[in-house]
Design a protein around this nucleic acid. Sequence first.
DNA 1: GGGACTGGTCGTGGTTATCT
DNA 2: AGATAACCACGACCAGTCCC
Length: 275
Amino acid sequence: MARENIYQPFEVFYERVDCCPLQNRLFNFFEFVFVISGEGYHIVNESKNSLKEGDLYLITPEDTHSFDLTSLSEFLVIRINTEYINQYNGINHLESVLYYASHLATSIITDSEDKELVKQLAHCLVQTTQHPKTYNCDLQRQYINAMMIIATRNLTSYTPQQLESKDERILEIVAYIQQNIYNLKQLTAQVIGDRFGLAPSYIGSYFFNQCGETMQQYITSYRLKLLKHRLLFSDYRIGEIAQEFYFTDESHANKFFKKHEGLSMSAFRKAQRKL
DNA sequence: GGGACTGGTCGTGGTTATCT
DNA sequence: AGATAACCACGACCAGTCCC
Protein backbone atom coordinates (compact mmCIF):
# COMPACT_ATOMS: atom_id res chain seq x y z
CA MET A 1 0.00 0.00 0.00
CA ALA A 2 1.30 3.49 -0.89
CA ARG A 3 2.38 5.61 2.06
CA GLU A 4 2.77 9.37 1.87
CA ASN A 5 4.49 11.70 4.29
CA ILE A 6 4.85 15.47 4.62
CA TYR A 7 7.84 17.13 6.22
CA GLN A 8 6.42 20.61 6.84
CA PRO A 9 3.49 21.85 8.99
CA PHE A 10 1.08 22.00 6.05
CA GLU A 11 0.81 21.73 2.28
CA VAL A 12 -1.83 23.19 -0.01
CA PHE A 13 -2.30 22.29 -3.67
CA TYR A 14 -4.86 22.27 -6.45
CA GLU A 15 -5.55 19.08 -8.43
CA ARG A 16 -7.40 18.61 -11.72
CA VAL A 17 -7.73 14.91 -12.54
CA ASP A 18 -10.03 12.40 -14.21
CA CYS A 19 -8.83 9.43 -12.20
CA CYS A 20 -7.45 9.01 -8.71
CA PRO A 21 -3.63 9.27 -8.95
CA LEU A 22 -3.04 6.88 -6.03
CA GLN A 23 -5.37 4.20 -4.70
CA ASN A 24 -5.70 3.31 -1.01
CA ARG A 25 -3.10 5.70 0.30
CA LEU A 26 -1.94 5.75 3.92
CA PHE A 27 -0.84 9.05 5.48
CA ASN A 28 1.10 10.33 8.44
CA PHE A 29 -1.00 13.52 8.35
CA PHE A 30 -4.55 14.85 8.29
CA GLU A 31 -5.90 15.73 4.86
CA PHE A 32 -8.80 18.02 3.95
CA VAL A 33 -10.10 17.55 0.40
CA PHE A 34 -12.53 20.15 -0.94
CA VAL A 35 -14.46 19.23 -4.10
CA ILE A 36 -14.40 22.25 -6.43
CA SER A 37 -16.14 20.34 -9.21
CA GLY A 38 -16.56 16.78 -10.43
CA GLU A 39 -18.52 13.56 -10.14
CA GLY A 40 -17.79 10.13 -8.77
CA TYR A 41 -17.35 8.42 -5.45
CA HIS A 42 -15.24 8.91 -2.33
CA ILE A 43 -14.09 5.72 -0.63
CA VAL A 44 -12.80 5.73 2.97
CA ASN A 45 -11.79 2.36 4.34
CA GLU A 46 -14.76 0.17 3.27
CA SER A 47 -17.27 3.00 3.00
CA LYS A 48 -18.21 4.42 -0.44
CA ASN A 49 -20.28 7.58 -0.98
CA SER A 50 -21.04 9.70 -4.03
CA LEU A 51 -19.17 13.01 -4.06
CA LYS A 52 -20.50 16.39 -5.13
CA GLU A 53 -19.32 19.95 -5.57
CA GLY A 54 -18.84 21.74 -2.25
CA ASP A 55 -18.10 18.59 -0.20
CA LEU A 56 -15.27 18.75 2.31
CA TYR A 57 -13.68 15.46 3.32
CA LEU A 58 -11.35 14.87 6.22
CA ILE A 59 -9.03 11.89 6.06
CA THR A 60 -7.25 11.02 9.30
CA PRO A 61 -3.85 9.28 9.58
CA GLU A 62 -5.56 5.94 10.23
CA ASP A 63 -7.76 6.03 7.13
CA THR A 64 -7.12 4.63 3.68
CA HIS A 65 -8.99 6.54 1.03
CA SER A 66 -9.36 6.91 -2.72
CA PHE A 67 -11.65 8.44 -5.34
CA ASP A 68 -13.55 6.64 -8.06
CA LEU A 69 -14.10 9.50 -10.54
CA THR A 70 -16.56 9.46 -13.44
CA SER A 71 -15.64 12.89 -14.86
CA LEU A 72 -12.83 15.43 -14.89
CA SER A 73 -12.74 16.77 -11.32
CA GLU A 74 -11.08 19.63 -9.45
CA PHE A 75 -9.94 19.38 -5.85
CA LEU A 76 -8.28 21.59 -3.29
CA VAL A 77 -6.07 19.43 -1.07
CA ILE A 78 -4.83 20.61 2.33
CA ARG A 79 -2.42 18.41 4.26
CA ILE A 80 -1.68 19.20 7.88
CA ASN A 81 0.74 17.29 10.07
CA THR A 82 -0.31 16.18 13.56
CA GLU A 83 2.30 18.41 15.20
CA TYR A 84 0.69 21.53 13.69
CA ILE A 85 -2.72 20.43 14.96
CA ASN A 86 -1.38 19.53 18.41
CA GLN A 87 0.17 22.98 18.75
CA TYR A 88 -3.01 24.80 17.73
CA ASN A 89 -4.15 26.81 20.76
CA GLY A 90 -7.61 27.96 19.70
CA ILE A 91 -9.67 24.84 20.46
CA ASN A 92 -9.08 22.28 23.22
CA HIS A 93 -8.34 18.74 22.03
CA LEU A 94 -8.66 19.78 18.40
CA GLU A 95 -6.83 16.73 17.07
CA SER A 96 -9.13 14.42 19.03
CA VAL A 97 -12.20 16.03 17.50
CA LEU A 98 -10.69 15.79 14.01
CA TYR A 99 -9.67 12.21 14.65
CA TYR A 100 -13.29 11.42 15.45
CA ALA A 101 -14.02 11.98 11.74
CA SER A 102 -12.17 8.74 11.03
CA HIS A 103 -14.20 6.46 8.72
CA LEU A 104 -16.45 9.30 7.45
CA ALA A 105 -16.71 9.05 3.66
CA THR A 106 -19.33 11.79 3.60
CA SER A 107 -18.78 15.57 3.72
CA ILE A 108 -17.97 16.72 7.26
CA ILE A 109 -19.74 20.06 6.77
CA THR A 110 -23.44 19.78 7.55
CA ASP A 111 -24.33 23.40 8.31
CA SER A 112 -25.50 25.28 5.17
CA GLU A 113 -23.92 28.61 6.19
CA ASP A 114 -20.64 26.84 6.95
CA LYS A 115 -20.72 25.22 3.50
CA GLU A 116 -20.69 28.68 1.96
CA LEU A 117 -17.87 29.80 4.27
CA VAL A 118 -15.78 26.74 3.37
CA LYS A 119 -16.38 27.37 -0.32
CA GLN A 120 -15.08 30.94 0.01
CA LEU A 121 -12.06 29.82 2.03
CA ALA A 122 -11.29 27.14 -0.56
CA HIS A 123 -11.50 29.74 -3.32
CA CYS A 124 -9.05 32.00 -1.42
CA LEU A 125 -6.66 29.09 -0.86
CA VAL A 126 -6.71 28.14 -4.55
CA GLN A 127 -5.76 31.71 -5.41
CA THR A 128 -2.75 31.57 -3.08
CA THR A 129 -1.52 28.44 -4.89
CA GLN A 130 -1.97 29.93 -8.36
CA HIS A 131 -0.70 33.46 -7.80
CA PRO A 132 2.47 33.41 -5.66
CA LYS A 133 2.73 36.64 -3.67
CA THR A 134 4.51 37.87 -0.56
CA TYR A 135 3.13 36.47 2.72
CA ASN A 136 1.08 33.83 0.89
CA CYS A 137 2.24 31.23 3.40
CA ASP A 138 0.98 33.30 6.34
CA LEU A 139 -2.30 33.87 4.53
CA GLN A 140 -2.66 30.13 3.92
CA ARG A 141 -2.05 29.48 7.61
CA GLN A 142 -4.95 31.77 8.57
CA TYR A 143 -7.29 30.23 5.99
CA ILE A 144 -6.39 26.70 7.13
CA ASN A 145 -6.99 27.61 10.78
CA ALA A 146 -10.41 28.98 9.83
CA MET A 147 -11.14 25.79 7.90
CA MET A 148 -10.17 23.67 10.93
CA ILE A 149 -12.45 25.68 13.24
CA ILE A 150 -15.41 25.29 10.89
CA ALA A 151 -14.69 21.57 10.49
CA THR A 152 -14.49 21.15 14.26
CA ARG A 153 -17.77 22.84 15.01
CA ASN A 154 -19.49 20.68 12.41
CA LEU A 155 -17.82 17.52 13.70
CA THR A 156 -18.76 18.19 17.31
CA SER A 157 -22.36 18.12 16.25
CA TYR A 158 -21.81 14.86 14.35
CA THR A 159 -24.18 12.09 15.43
CA PRO A 160 -23.46 8.36 15.65
CA GLN A 161 -24.38 6.28 12.60
CA GLN A 162 -26.66 4.05 14.69
CA LEU A 163 -28.69 7.10 15.59
CA GLU A 164 -31.69 7.02 13.26
CA SER A 165 -34.05 8.98 15.47
CA LYS A 166 -35.59 12.20 14.24
CA ASP A 167 -36.12 13.37 17.80
CA GLU A 168 -34.16 16.63 18.04
CA ARG A 169 -33.68 16.24 21.78
CA ILE A 170 -31.60 13.07 21.44
CA LEU A 171 -29.44 14.81 18.80
CA GLU A 172 -28.85 17.62 21.29
CA ILE A 173 -28.03 15.14 24.05
CA VAL A 174 -25.48 13.34 21.84
CA ALA A 175 -23.91 16.69 20.88
CA TYR A 176 -23.81 17.68 24.56
CA ILE A 177 -22.07 14.40 25.48
CA GLN A 178 -19.45 14.94 22.77
CA GLN A 179 -18.80 18.50 23.93
CA ASN A 180 -18.40 17.42 27.57
CA ILE A 181 -16.61 14.12 27.01
CA TYR A 182 -13.61 15.33 29.05
CA ASN A 183 -15.77 16.24 32.05
CA LEU A 184 -17.72 13.21 33.26
CA LYS A 185 -19.30 15.20 36.08
CA GLN A 186 -21.37 16.93 33.41
CA LEU A 187 -22.46 13.59 31.95
CA THR A 188 -24.44 12.09 34.84
CA ALA A 189 -28.11 11.19 34.37
CA GLN A 190 -28.99 13.90 36.89
CA VAL A 191 -27.16 16.71 35.01
CA ILE A 192 -28.35 15.60 31.56
CA GLY A 193 -31.90 15.09 32.84
CA ASP A 194 -31.99 18.58 34.34
CA ARG A 195 -30.56 20.13 31.21
CA PHE A 196 -32.89 18.42 28.73
CA GLY A 197 -36.06 18.24 30.81
CA LEU A 198 -36.09 14.48 31.36
CA ALA A 199 -36.32 12.59 34.63
CA PRO A 200 -32.89 11.18 35.55
CA SER A 201 -34.54 7.82 36.13
CA TYR A 202 -35.88 7.89 32.57
CA ILE A 203 -32.69 9.05 30.78
CA GLY A 204 -31.22 5.53 30.56
CA SER A 205 -34.16 3.88 28.82
CA TYR A 206 -34.82 6.98 26.69
CA PHE A 207 -31.24 7.00 25.37
CA PHE A 208 -31.30 3.25 24.74
CA ASN A 209 -34.60 3.44 22.84
CA GLN A 210 -33.31 6.24 20.63
CA CYS A 211 -29.73 5.05 20.03
CA GLY A 212 -29.78 1.29 20.45
CA GLU A 213 -27.02 1.38 23.07
CA THR A 214 -26.89 2.54 26.68
CA MET A 215 -25.63 6.03 27.42
CA GLN A 216 -22.69 4.55 29.34
CA GLN A 217 -21.75 2.32 26.39
CA TYR A 218 -21.77 5.34 24.11
CA ILE A 219 -19.72 7.50 26.50
CA THR A 220 -17.27 4.66 27.08
CA SER A 221 -16.70 3.90 23.41
CA TYR A 222 -16.26 7.59 22.58
CA ARG A 223 -13.77 8.08 25.43
CA LEU A 224 -11.86 4.97 24.37
CA LYS A 225 -11.60 6.21 20.81
CA LEU A 226 -10.20 9.57 21.95
CA LEU A 227 -7.92 7.90 24.50
CA LYS A 228 -6.44 5.57 21.86
CA HIS A 229 -5.80 8.51 19.60
CA ARG A 230 -4.08 10.41 22.41
CA LEU A 231 -1.82 7.42 23.02
CA LEU A 232 -0.93 7.11 19.36
CA PHE A 233 -0.47 10.72 18.37
CA SER A 234 1.04 12.38 21.44
CA ASP A 235 4.14 11.83 23.52
CA TYR A 236 2.38 12.59 26.81
CA ARG A 237 3.04 10.18 29.66
CA ILE A 238 0.29 7.76 30.70
CA GLY A 239 -0.33 9.76 33.88
CA GLU A 240 -0.69 13.00 31.95
CA ILE A 241 -3.19 11.45 29.55
CA ALA A 242 -5.15 9.99 32.49
CA GLN A 243 -5.25 13.44 34.06
CA GLU A 244 -6.40 14.99 30.80
CA PHE A 245 -9.35 12.57 30.64
CA TYR A 246 -10.22 13.32 34.31
CA PHE A 247 -9.25 9.90 35.64
CA THR A 248 -8.18 10.18 39.26
CA ASP A 249 -4.90 8.50 38.43
CA GLU A 250 -3.22 6.34 35.83
CA SER A 251 -4.17 3.25 37.81
CA HIS A 252 -7.80 3.92 37.22
CA ALA A 253 -7.24 4.88 33.56
CA ASN A 254 -5.26 1.71 32.97
CA LYS A 255 -7.93 -0.45 34.57
CA PHE A 256 -10.54 1.19 32.36
CA PHE A 257 -8.41 0.78 29.23
CA LYS A 258 -7.34 -2.79 29.88
CA LYS A 259 -10.89 -3.90 30.60
CA HIS A 260 -12.07 -2.74 27.20
CA GLU A 261 -8.98 -3.24 25.04
CA GLY A 262 -7.42 -6.25 26.74
CA LEU A 263 -3.99 -4.64 27.17
CA SER A 264 -2.51 -1.78 29.16
CA MET A 265 -2.18 1.72 27.74
CA SER A 266 1.58 1.53 27.38
CA ALA A 267 1.37 -1.94 25.80
CA PHE A 268 -1.18 -0.57 23.31
CA ARG A 269 1.08 2.38 22.48
CA LYS A 270 4.12 0.13 22.00
CA ALA A 271 2.22 -2.38 19.87
CA GLN A 272 0.71 0.27 17.60
CA ARG A 273 3.96 2.18 17.12
CA LYS A 274 5.73 -0.99 15.99
CA LEU A 275 3.27 -1.29 13.06
C1' DG B 1 13.60 7.12 41.99
C1' DG B 2 9.95 7.82 39.02
C1' DG B 3 6.71 5.95 36.00
C1' DA B 4 3.79 2.02 34.98
C1' DC B 5 0.92 -1.41 36.55
C1' DT B 6 -2.01 -4.57 39.72
C1' DG B 7 -5.33 -5.66 43.08
C1' DG B 8 -8.56 -4.76 46.86
C1' DT B 9 -12.32 -2.17 49.17
C1' DC B 10 -16.16 0.81 49.31
C1' DG B 11 -19.50 4.17 47.89
C1' DT B 12 -21.95 6.09 44.03
C1' DG B 13 -24.65 5.97 40.24
C1' DG B 14 -26.44 3.55 35.97
C1' DT B 15 -29.20 -0.32 34.12
C1' DT B 16 -33.14 -2.88 33.98
C1' DA B 17 -37.61 -4.77 35.03
C1' DT B 18 -41.86 -3.63 36.67
C1' DC B 19 -45.49 -0.79 37.65
C1' DT B 20 -48.51 3.47 37.49
C1' DA C 1 -43.45 9.56 30.38
C1' DG C 2 -41.97 8.78 34.75
C1' DA C 3 -41.14 6.39 39.53
C1' DT C 4 -39.25 2.65 42.24
C1' DA C 5 -36.11 -0.79 43.76
C1' DA C 6 -32.67 -4.39 43.25
C1' DC C 7 -28.59 -5.39 41.26
C1' DC C 8 -24.19 -4.52 39.61
C1' DA C 9 -20.58 -1.95 37.14
C1' DC C 10 -17.75 1.81 37.62
C1' DG C 11 -14.88 5.31 39.83
C1' DA C 12 -12.09 6.88 43.81
C1' DC C 13 -8.63 5.80 46.73
C1' DC C 14 -4.87 3.32 48.56
C1' DA C 15 -1.04 0.08 49.09
C1' DG C 16 2.12 -2.47 46.98
C1' DT C 17 5.17 -4.43 43.15
C1' DC C 18 7.74 -4.20 38.93
C1' DC C 19 10.96 -2.27 35.80
C1' DC C 20 13.88 0.87 33.22
